[in-house]
Design a protein around this nucleic acid. Structure first.
Length: 305
DNA sequence: GTGATTTGACCCCA
DNA sequence: TGGGGTCAAATCAC
């Protein structure tokens, strides 16, 4: 980030004749400075506590599962990994742009709601080790406590939001850029509110459509007969509900395909960088700077820097 | 047919 | 020893 800030400062010098370009560079510098300050604060908070070393050993015979109808086929490495990067945050929208696959759900002691376990869809095809755990907050059923374990090493197309180009001249900025919309405002319409430990990224109507599309994994009668529900993984790539929501959003006047996919980015990217860094520490306080990179991955995908 | 979800069983580890 | 994390067969959805 420091290097980026230096380069942006150089760019600002070169663009001093263009007020608009200078203003944009100002915004870049401001965002970078905020991110650096946030990283510093995080590092200071973590001072003195070392991150956990990753232990993913899978020794022969270790963690063998006893035959349960399937014999030794079910034997697998069950040694619990101690992950180097763990981030827990409380959010309203569980959608993060990555493709997740649910692999388990557990009732948690002293919690009203079960915890759902997700792994990256590309765990096997791209050896991506990212995991996510989602649990509805007891005190605020509208919010979800999401724990990210590990970082994405995959290149998920669904997570790469396209960039809106205003003119063909902008193509030189990067070969991965995709031109969609003629309307630049579509990429900037988002607001962020942060209340206490809860970071809520409220986006515009297309994101509301995504949020509304969250469907319960399971409806069951809880204590007292009320219905409890657990949110499913919502992924642009894997969820038909999400796809439907995105289709609906695409039909919204003023929005085009570019708007739909970049809407995911709107929730997390751009000026929201500093706000995204309002993490809650896990119980064990695990956190490292790799997490910042993970959280900011949306911009990596679209900004091509 | 393929991929995602559900869910009971298994196992690690505090 | 039990809570929590993971596996994988069965089932579901498209």
């Amino acid at each position: 980030m420091r290097r980026g800030r230096e380069i942006a400062a150089q760019l600002q010098g070169l663009l001093r004749d263009s007020p608009e370009a200078g203003r944009l560079v100002d915004q870049i510098l401001h965002a970078m400075s905020r991110t650096i300050e946030t990283a510093k604060a995080v590092a200071a908070a973590e001072e003195g506590s070392e991150g956990h070393s990753e232990v993913t050993t899978c020794a022969p015979g270790a963690g063998k599962r006893k035959a349960a109808g399937g014999g030794d086929k079910r034997a697998a490495c069950r040694r619990r990994a101690h992950h180097s990067s763990t981030v827990t945050m409380t959010i309203k929208d569980v959608e993060d742009g990555h493709a997740w696959r649910k692999y388990g759900q557990k009732e948690i002691q002293n919690s009203k709601y079960p915890k759902a376990y997700f792994r990256c869809t590309h765990k096997y095809d791209q050896q991506c080790a990212a995991l996510r755990q989602v649990q509805r907050c007891d005190e605020d059923p509208d919010a979800f406590r999401v724990t990210y374990i590990g970082v994405h090493t995959c290149r998920d197309p669904a997570a790469v939001a396209p960039v809106v180009l205003h003119s063909a001249d902008e193509l030189h900025a990067g070969s991965r850029l995709i031109s969609f919309a003629p309307n630049a405002s579509a990429t900037t319409a988002s607001t962020t509110t942060t209340t206490g430990n809860t970071s809520s990224h409220h986006c515009d109507q297309k994101d509301a459509a995504l949020l509304a599309s969250l469907r319960p994994l399971k409806l069951e009668s809880g204590a007292g007969g009320e219905q409890e529900e657990v949110l499913s993984s919502l992924t642009p790539a894997g969820s038909s509900a999400a796809a439907e929501a995105m289709r609906n959003a695409a039909a919204t006047p003023g929005l085009d395909q570019g708007d739909v996919t970049s809407g995911l980015h709107n929730c997390y990217g751009g000026d929201d960088l500093a706000d995204m860094a309002t993490f809650n520490y896990d119980d064990d306080g695990t956190f490292d700077l790799d997490d910042l990179d993970d959280v900011f991955r949306f911009d990596h995908g679209q900004a091509d820097y």
